[in-house]
């Protein structure tokens, strides 16, 4: 049996997992399901695309590629800058919209506002870039054997490696840094955290910035392996929510594992029923989790 689909599922799962970590963090700390998270993914990717093009043009297009990878250093530099900008976008959206609703204390109105914001942000991308897909590179890469009859492209190797680094860094950050501990405190109990002297506003800003960074990472991965479209984030949103709930809201490792499960399940479903119903897999997983164990694999509350 050809296990190639598993490899594609793992790459997809890694990027779903990165997005889901952002969703689960903002969900547990800000206490609402942010429907605009998909738009952070799309905006981060498009900003990376614009910056990559700008840098390459600046250097006369002679930036080359890194070893066997399909892209050069401009993509990495642009990705880091775009991640920061996306974090800024998330903070700005919070200032303009969510912070004003937060004081009224109705979480579901914030969900609705995020839904409106996502529609506006997505359509704005469509207005600027049209719905035609864009690509970081049009080169076709040769896949190299990775054992068990699976072949991976150098890009895929790199992205899996990058995901692992991000996960380790995030884990260390959340468990060791002062900001990380403050974030976990607010997620456990915001009132108690405030009483204990945690600067909740700062924690909220940090959460948005991290969500924006992770969203950009996940979007650029999707852009490198598949393509860039204004709807790319919207189409990822259901898998992200499914992964975050499967892992248990608030659990970072849960979200990552949930992302891998959703990614691989989608790849398996494509093998069995074809690609047409791929997007329904996340929905079925979501329904199954809500039926069997609504708190998810590593969830604590409820």
């Amino acid at each position: 049996m050809n296990l190639q689909f598993l490899a594609d599922g793992v790459v997809m799962g890694a990027l779903i997992g990165l997005g889901a970590v952002g969703v689960t963090l903002s969900y547990s700390i800000l206490r609402f399901a942010n429907f605009a998270h998909g738009e952070f993914i799309a905006w981060g990717t498009y900003m990376t695309l614009v910056l990559t093009t700008a840098i390459s043009t600046l250097f006369g297009g002679h930036t080359g590629t890194i070893g066997p990878l399909s892209f050069g250093w401009p993509l990495l530099v642009a990705g880091v800058a775009a991640a920061a900008l996306t974090g800024g976008l998330a903070v700005a959206l919070d200032r303009l919209l969510f912070s004003k609703l937060r004081s009224k204390g109705n979480a579901i109105v914030m969900v609705m506002a995020s839904f409106g914001a996502s529609m506006a942000l997505r359509s704005l991308l469509e207005f600027i870039f049209t719905s035609r897909p864009a690509y970081f590179t049009r080169d076709i890469q040769m896949a190299v054997p990775a054992g068990l009859g699976i072949r991976l492209t150098p890009d895929q190797f790199f992205l899996i490696f990058l995901t692992m680094i991000i996960v380790v860094v995030m884990d260390r950050f959340l468990s060791l840094s002062a900001t990380g501990r403050a974030m976990r405190a607010v997620s456990e109990n915001p009132i108690l955290a405030r009483v204990a002297g945690v600067d909740v506003e700062r924690v909220i800003r940090a959460t948005w910035i991290i969500a924006g960074i992770l969203a950009t990472a996940s979007g650029v991965m999707l852009g490198v392996t598949v393509q860039i479209r204004p709807f790319m984030g919207f189409d990822l949103l259901l898998p992200l929510f499914a992964a975050a709930i499967l892992g248990g809201i608030g659990s970072m490792s849960g979200a990552m594992l949930g992302g891998l499960i959703v990614g691989v399940a989608e790849a398996v479903a494509v093998q069995i029923v074809g690609a047409d119903y791929r997007a329904a897999v996340a929905f079925l997983i979501l329904i199954a989790v809500l039926l069997v164990k609504p708190s998810g694999l590593f969830g604590v509350r409820e």
């Binding site: 969900y27 979480a107 579901i108 949103l237 259901l238 929510f241 499914a242 329904a280 929905f283 979501l286």
Partner: peptide, 17 residues
Amino acid sequence: RLRADYLAITTFGIAIT
């Protein structure tokens, strides 16, 4: 029976499905 946002997420899912 679950928290309010789950209805939002699930109805979003059924519309896509």
